[in-house]
């Protein structure tokens, strides 16, 4: 049976077989106030008690825009309960000795399960900004949206270039160290944010990069490296991170290893590329090696990213 002929029959079987099952697919995780009625007056009910500044700051955020029908406070919106769930029971008078019914709470330490928290956010955002959320490591590792975002703050720290890295570093601890190395992208100086290269909401790209490949991500700022060039250096065309450590390095040019050893990990031609350059070749000694100090191999092969010169086959022009 050829595949094209089998396709409709297979689909039919899948459809007939799965249809009844799918109709009874359950809700994965229950909210604490699932099934509860909504409050009588919406936000006015909530604000009767929750009127502290960190709560009402939400009215200076994108979520509280009465003129945008897509937001919780838009026309017909469920206001606070759009995110926190129905609060009818929560707002009722509580009998002595009984605890007040919970609402959905957000944050790293919130009692509400991460799945429930995120389901509330994804209810609106999955279809727009975070289409691949479920493919990303943040979802895999059960990170809540509110672990990074503070939707009640007019200035959400993770959305500002200068303050975003500190939010990321709370989990990505090693990266904080790496960006303090002598040669690093200007994250420490507030000129580059993690999200300039990485898509935290999930993507199919490796390392959650903003573009489909490593090189395409690098070309966002380093377009001059795109080429093509007459004499290409093969690894350059394939993956910049073959040689570079983008989070920082102790070596000039953010390369993973200092030359000539880095170059000698690939090049072994007879003569100077294959020598073991020891410290006797350092400047100041009797016969300093041209390939050791300053730009090391690049003292001559300075066009290491490729050359467009007809005589540049050795990457010297």
């Amino acid at each position: 049976m050829k595949l094209p002929q089998a396709l409709p029959r297979g689909l039919l079987l899948i459809g007939l077989g799965l249809g009844p099952m799918l109709a009874f697919a359950g809700v994965p995780e229950k909210a604490p106030n699932a099934g509860a009625p909504y409050s009588a007056k919406g936000a006015d009910t909530c604000l009767s008690c929750h009127d502290d500044p960190e709560v009402v700051d939400v009215f200076h955020t994108a979520h509280a825009q009465p003129n945008d029908a897509r937001t919780p406070f838009g026309k017909g919106g469920l206001q606070c309960e759009a995110c926190h769930g129905p609060g009818g029971n929560h707002a009722k008078r509580v009998k002595k000795g009984e605890s007040r019914p919970s609402m959905i709470k957000f944050g790293r330490t919130a009692a509400t399960p991460v799945g429930v928290q995120n389901a509330m956010c994804l209810g609106c955002h999955e279809q727009t900004a975070v289409a691949n959320w479920h493919m990303g490591p943040h979802d895999v590792n059960n990170v809540s949206c509110a672990a990074c975002h503070d939707s009640h703050k007019a200035k959400d720290a993770v959305l500002a270039r200068a303050t975003q890295p500190d939010v990321c570093y709370t989990c990505h601890v090693a990266e904080r160290s790496q960006f303090q190395k002598v040669y690093a992208h200007p994250v420490r100086q507030g000129k580059l944010a993690c999200s300039d290269c990485h898509a935290p909401h999930g993507t199919v790209a490796q390392k959650q990069l903003v573009r489909a490949t490593v090189n395409d991500t690098c070309y966002e700022c380093h377009a001059e490296k795109r080429g093509p060039l007459l004499w290409e250096h093969q690894p350059v065309t394939e993956d910049c991170s073959t040689c570079h450590a983008p989070h920082g390095s102790s070596n000039p040019g953010m390369v993973k290893q200092r030359g000539p050893l880095l170059c000698q990990s690939c090049h072994s031609q007879q003569g100077h590329p294959s020598f073991g350059y020891g410290p006797s070749g350092l400047p100041g000694n009797a016969a300093p090696a041209t390939a050791l100090a300053l730009g090391n191999c690049m003292n001559c092969h300075s066009q290491v990213h490729g050359s467009n010169h007809p005589s540049g086959s050795s990457l010297t022009r």
Partner: peptide, 23 residues
Amino acid sequence: GVQAEESAASDTSAWACKKCTFA
């Protein structure tokens, strides 16, 4: 399947949001 996940909407026509201090 999609229908099963949706909850009933509330009547919000009386939600005046008088205490909402919009920017």
